[in-house]
């Protein structure tokens, strides 16, 4: 059965992912998806990687 994973990048924010079951990070660690939509950190400053924790809001625009 084919599954659709939907990816929605948010300007100056995370990437929203719908339909995924597991997110595998760059070290190969598996992170099970437990909510209908997850936000993946792209600023790399989150304390909850791979998930966004809102930290990107504290980063100045010129450092983004």
């Amino acid at each position: 059965m084919s599954r659709t994973v939907q990816v929605q990048p948010c300007p100056r924010g995370p990437v929203l992912v719908r339909g995924a079951e597991v997110v595998v990070d760059e070290d190969g660690a598996q992170h099970p998806v437990t909510r209908p939509v997850v936000a993946l950190c792209v600023c790399r400053r989150s304390s909850r990687k791979p998930w966004c924790d809102g930290t990107h809001k504290a980063i100045r625009d010129d450092l983004r």
């Binding site: 948010c10 995370p14 929203l16 939509v37 997850v38 936000a39 998930w51 924790d53 809102g54």
Partner: peptide
């Protein structure tokens, strides 16, 4: 922390 990082965007 994680839920509202998603919810605010939605």
């Amino acid at each position: 922390v994680e839920a509202d990082a998603v919810h605010e965007q939605i």
